[in-house]
């Protein structure tokens, strides 16, 4: 399991108040997602690379994560240049690639990578539990937050359960292949996981009832803004604000 892989460092970004990191991450992502001016996007790329450097994360790990993102984007490159209208640039057989299509695909690539890098640098540097607490202090509905908590808590348990079932199959010489026996066995595995999760959910509910649960959750941790938090918030707001004004005011 690779939850909280990036959260163990001790950089400036790791120590920053998670509430403001969430706010900046949301603002930044929204602006980058809707922006189309190159100068604005270039600023965004620089900003997220700067964050990455400040966070002092293993560049190799970050690169591996980006590979996953770009695997999806690869599909865009297969379709977008050939389906988007506009000036023809070159053709492969009966397919015409347009200049606008390529620019569009390029923009999407830059945008998604920029957002993911910024999210890794800002959000993955906080343990997910702390993020949950920060979200609740930002008035995100408690049901969503508890969904997040339960997911984190039981992902591990489910994963272990999956490992146990897989091991049980392996020690009886199960080797996956392309045949009905494999499909049937794997669907048993998934079915069993679903049933076990259902049963576990029931037992957890009972355990909670036994401890007097009546629909209310309470949070114990609180955050306090430090001086450095305010300084960093101002700097990052300035950059994000600059990006927004480049996009909508200066280059209009």
């Amino acid at each position: 399991m690779h939850i909280d892989n990036f959260a163990s460092g001790d950089s400036l970004l790791h120590r920053l108040d998670p509430r403001l990191k969430i706010v900046i991450a949301v603002l930044f992502s929204v602006i980058v997602a809707v922006a189309d001016k190159s100068l604005c996007l270039a600023t965004a790329v620089c900003f997220s690379l700067a964050l990455l450097l400040i966070a002092r994360l293993s560049l190799r790990e970050v690169f591996l994560r980006l590979l996953v993102v770009n695997a999806f984007i690869l599909f865009l490159w297969l379709f977008l240049p050939f389906t988007y209208g506009g000036e023809k640039l070159f053709s492969i057989g009966p397919l015409d690639a347009t200049r606008d299509g390529i620019i569009y695909a390029l923009q999407i690539t830059v945008k998604s990578n920029t957002i993911v890098v910024a999210l890794i640098a800002l959000l993955a540097t906080t343990p997910i539990i702390t993020l949950g607490h920060a979200l609740s202090h930002l008035y995100v509905p408690s049901k969503l937050i508890h969904l997040l908590f339960f997911t984190v808590r039981y992902l591990q348990v489910l994963h272990l359960e999956y490992d146990r079932l897989r091991a049980a199959m392996k020690i009886r010489a199960f080797r996956p292949g392309t045949n009905l026996h494999t499909y049937r066995s794997l669907s048993y595995l998934i079915g069993m996981l679903l049933i076990k999760s259902f049963d576990r959910a029931d037992r957890i509910r009972k355990a909670m009832l036994c401890r007097g649960f009546h629909g209310e959750f309470y949070l114990l941790s609180h955050f306090k803004l430090q001086k450095i938090d305010v300084v960093m918030l101002l700097i990052m707001m300035l950059v994000v604000g600059g990006m927004a004004s480049l996009q909508w005011i200066i280059l209009k």
């Binding site: 539990i129 808590r153 576990r200 957890i204």
Partner: peptide, 17 residues
């Protein structure tokens, strides 16, 4: 015990009751 402990941290779980 995995049924019983459902909060992220130990302190939160013990304080739940």
């Amino acid at each position: 015990s995995d049924d019983q402990l459902f909060c992220p941290t130990v302190a939160e779980d013990v304080a739940f009751g």
